[in-house]
Amino acid sequence: MIIKTISTILSNEPVGENIYRIELLSPEISTASKPGQFINIKVSENLDPLLRRPFSVYNVIDDRIQIIFNVVGKATKILSSKKVGEKIDIIGPLGNGFNLNDDFDTALIVAGGLGIAPFPFLTKILKEKNKNIISLVGARTKSQLVLDGFVNVNTATDDGSYGHKGTVVELFKLKVMNNDIVKTPSAFKVFACGPIPMLKAIIELCDKLNLNCEVSVEAPMACGTGLCQGCAVKTRDGKYKLACKDGPIFNSKDILL
């Protein structure tokens, strides 16, 4: 069930360089949300920006829902300047969410840049399910690392300002080659989110090591509900699935990025 609601902004704060976190009051959507799902926000009543913008559910705390974003364009600039108490039009929860019913003991979370977005909520639910968690988080530089809500974290920065110097993909490689994962891949499940080149590299490695892996895919999107068919993601059988409805979470074996 898709819920459309006018939600009050409870907080809006910078949590990293150019990165903001907004907390919204929405009892209905909070209750209905699963990790990996997203909400679609109309950032202003004006005709420009026209379409809603999709944001992963970053976390759910009681009747509140959080999103996180980088200021990259018109819409995110408007969002970053929203004041506490202002109301915005949101719909959600949208999309499928991560599949947590698979048989695995340890979750290997891999986040690149703003790919952190779905993981604090996922971490919370994985903890409730008593799963082991290893988190790998990468960013360009230390000031862009937002580690709240992660547990057992290993970091990578492009400039080496915090943790491993290099990409989160390299960190992932080091991790998976260097311990029990290679011996018992079935005890692990990888959850990845980040830029497309990063996801491609992660998927390739998971294929090689026969690791169960789900990725959260971002695609240009208009409606978020399957009406427009805009957010196509290529599948390995040469067809397309929709990021908004069939995704945004896909098993790495199903898609071709």
Binding site: L47, D48, L50, A219, P220, Q229, Y240
Partner: peptide, 20 residues
Amino acid sequence: KVGNPPPRVAETPCGMLNSI
């Protein structure tokens, strides 16, 4: 019909381009 490859949509001022 499976439709066109992505990207299929892009927002432009007060409008959107599509190629579904």
